[in-house]
Design a protein around this nucleic acid. Structure first.
Lengths: 228, 228
DNA sequence: AATGCGGGTGATCGGGCGATAGATAGGCGG
DNA sequence: CCGCCTATCTATCGCCCGATCACCCGCATT
């Protein structure tokens, strides 16, 4: 009685390597890096030892997954959009966040990012440092300019300003966390949500930012301050 | 040559049970639920089989960790603060978020919450549904009242309004993610940051919220809308 | 001092999983 | 059609880890 067995499909080394890499991304996103090589092999329709022909060990496979997901995620046009002074700052910032959300709100990115953070990789901090240096600084610079505040060259960007931009970043990223980590429902029209978040940010932040830029306002903290 | 061995410390069943439970929380927070029972036992200064005298298996231990962390985290006073009409809504909302941040921004909570989410538990969605029903609805109700918008009884709370409140929640929670999952530095004075986030929220959201409440404004989406 | 109860330990089992080694098959150059 | 090269498979090793079992020991009771 012959066991029903999928036919041995023979690929070139390159093809098979890419095949495994793609499968590994999908698999480890879902199962976490504790996922088993046997299970991965089963999903790929190959035997488990074959993985070891292309990757010396599991760790190498995981490294490959990181590279696959982290590289090519950064879009240089983001910086261009933020620098394009032919459009109003407000419009540029909203446009950027809409693009950014599109790139970042994916099952793979959100989960790999979390898994790598929990694993103690420093990939996250490296990536986020990049975001801060390339993106946050630009957003703050444009916001300041739009509201007639001193430029970063004149007054360096303060911790609190970064925090405010972090908040917008967080509220967008968290949409992905809700969906792909908590398994919650999220609105269908994410684009519209992101646009509204950015709008609310642009409306609400400048006042706080201006206050953070005038050192005097920092002294009395406990009393609930209303505007003015 | 006698091996140096910690003396066998004998506790009452109750004490030992709590001892293990506390240790398990600390351990699994750090190592994730894939952490090994032997390692846990070593940290507790006991042998691994002793764990099984108090918990039938590893899963039960993990359940206990969940209970330990999830229960007693909810503070009923939160709702009272938000309902206390003797203070201005603005002040109440800021006060609430300051309290909430204090409860939620802890190593244990942030990491257990993430781990349980990635594990596919529905604890997260249960907890967050509670937050939405008990907190978000109140925040929105008070915000609407302060700005002369119809009450939730008159016009039910819309998806977009919830999204705006989610955003504030996210920006606070994400501070913890940055610190305890990504290992990034965060400002020393988190209280002040939270207050500023809440302030920026209160300044920026009402305009967007009012727009979301008038269905006409929803039609033209693509054109960059400036205020007014 | 003898006894027994219950907290604690050492030794070990059995399955799971990463990794390896040797056998097999299928296509290509000659 | 032959022989070789290499992609793939079968079988298995060795360690790790959750779980179990039989035994030990110290205190309370009598």
């Amino acid at each position: 009685m012959p066991v029903k067995r999928p036919p041995r499909t023979r690929l070139s080394a390159d093809e098979r390597e890419r095949h495994i890499a793609r499968g590994a991304v999908a698999f480890f996103c879902e199962a976490g890096f504790g996922g088993q090589t046997r299970e991965l092999a089963k999903r790929l329709g190959i035997t488990q030892p074959l993985l070891y022909r292309y990757f010396p060990n599991k760790e190498a496979l995981i490294d490959r997954v990181y590279r696959e997901v982290y590289l090519n995620r950064w879009d240089p046009r983001w910086e261009e959009v933020l620098d394009d002074h032919s459009r109003p700052a407000r419009e540029r910032i909203i446009a950027f966040y809409r693009e950014y959300a599109k790139a970042v709100l994916s099952y793979e990115w959100i989960r790999i990012f979390m898994f790598s953070g929990l694993r103690g990789m420093n990939l996250n901090s490296r990536y986020l440092t990049l975001v801060r240096d390339r993106i946050y600084t630009r957003v703050i610079r444009e916001l300041r300019r739009e509201h007639g505040l001193p430029s970063p060259a004149e007054v360096p960007i303060g911790e609190m300003e970064f925090e405010l931009v972090w908040a917008l970043h967080a509220s967008i990223f968290y949409i992905g966390i809700r969906k792909w980590i908590y398994g919650l429902e999220i609105p269908e029209n994410v684009d519209e949500v992101v646009e509204n978040l950015a709008t609310a940010f642009l409306d609400g932040v400048p006042a706080v930012m201006a206050r953070a830029l005038t050192p005097a306002a920092k002294a009395p903290r406990r009393a609930p301050r209303r505007r003015g």
